[in-house]
């Protein structure tokens, strides 16, 4: 491993300063970065450890009902957070899909986003909930939708001297539900061959008022299935409609064939997972009385 200087800044501002050292990399959980450095797949002269910065690891309720998750908060702290488990269960559950418990005890939500793996399990539920990313840089702070951060496998819109500081979850509207499902050959410790995150919001008559469908592992980035979403709008969520939405989402997906699965298999998985996730949302909404 190439030698590097280790920084343990006390604030986000100091972390941004350290990132400007040149050939610097953010060290959050380190569960991807440390093997990459050891194997020479990434080089860094400066590592900027975020885990001792309270503002970057805190999960706090904001005025108006939103929740802010510090980018370096561990997946375990997210899965165990009572408000996230209660109001964003798909996000809490997806945090428990990444690696082992040992990995979840270290890995951060910001790392799962910034690694920009098309298979990142924690990302589709964030996009479903219209999560926003807060980004700090030398010239100040900017904010953008988590869904707009990705440029391709392993690539985001963040500049080298920018730092993802927090993920903001807006309060979920009443009569809404979200669900993320993925398929792996093994039950644990595996990477999704395909994943589908869905979010449904119903009007007072039980028709679909808004829908978001976000697919994992079937494109260069996590991707929306806009046509499938449009097919749901204004309709009663019948079984036939959910099957149709799954079929349309499969058509929109852009999978490749690789060692984990063929493109055809992935499309079939998208169809099934989308339908199942939508159906799970309907079960939740029925339990809450939003569907007769």
């Amino acid at each position: 491993m190439q030698d590097f200087e280790y920084h343990r800044p006390k604030s986000a501002a100091a972390a941004v300063e350290a990132l400007c050292s040149g050939e610097a990399r953010v060290l959050a959980g380190g569960t991807d970065l440390i093997p990459q450095l050891r194997e020479g797949r990434r080089l860094a002269r400066h590592l900027v450890d975020l885990k001792r910065i309270p503002e970057l690891t805190a999960i706090v309720a904001l005025p108006g009902g939103a929740i802010s998750i510090g980018a370096a908060a561990t997946l375990t702290s997210i899965a165990q957070h009572p408000s996230i488990a209660a109001h964003y269960p798909s996000i809490a559950q997806s945090a428990r899909l990444v690696g082992s418990l040992q990995v979840q005890n270290r890995a951060s939500l910001g790392g799962n986003i910034c690694n920009a793996a098309p298979s990142a399990d924690a990302v589709p539920p964030l996009i479903c909930h219209e999560a926003r990313a807060t980004i700090a840089g030398r010239s100040g702070q900017r904010e953008m939708a988590v869904g707009e951060l990705f440029r391709g496998p392993g690539r985001t819109l963040l500049e080298a001297d920018e730092l993802l500081t927090a993920i903001i979850l807006p309060p979920p509207p009443t009569r809404s539900a979200a669900r993320y499902l993925r398929f792996t050959p093994r039950r644990e410790m595996d990477i999704a061959i395909a994943g589908a995150g869905v979010w449904l919001s119903l009007d007072t008559r039980g028709s679909v008022a808004a829908a978001r469908i976000v697919l994992a592992s079937v494109g260069p980035t996590p991707m929306r299935a806009h046509a499938a979403e449009a097919a749901l709008l204004g309709e009663q969520p019948s079984k036939a409609l959910l099957i149709e939405a799954g079929r349309i989402a499969a058509g929109e997906s852009q999978p490749i064939s690789d060692t984990r699965g063929s493109a055809d298999y992935r499309r079939e998985l998208v169809s099934v997972l989308t339908k199942r996730a939508l159906s799970d949302c309907c079960v939740q909404l029925k339990a809450e009385g939003a569907i007769a």
Binding site: Y6, T31, I34, P35, L47, S100, Q102, N105, R106
Partner: peptide, 27 residues
């Protein structure tokens, strides 16, 4: 494995199970 897949290097760090191969000593 040295890559966080096998768990043979699991230790407790401030009470939480972690893969010691995925943590820098400085951390």
């Amino acid at each position: 494995c040295g890559n966080g897949n096998c768990g043979t290097c699991t230790v407790l760090m401030d009470g939480a199970a972690v893969n010691a191969c995925l943590v820098l000593a400085q951390e």
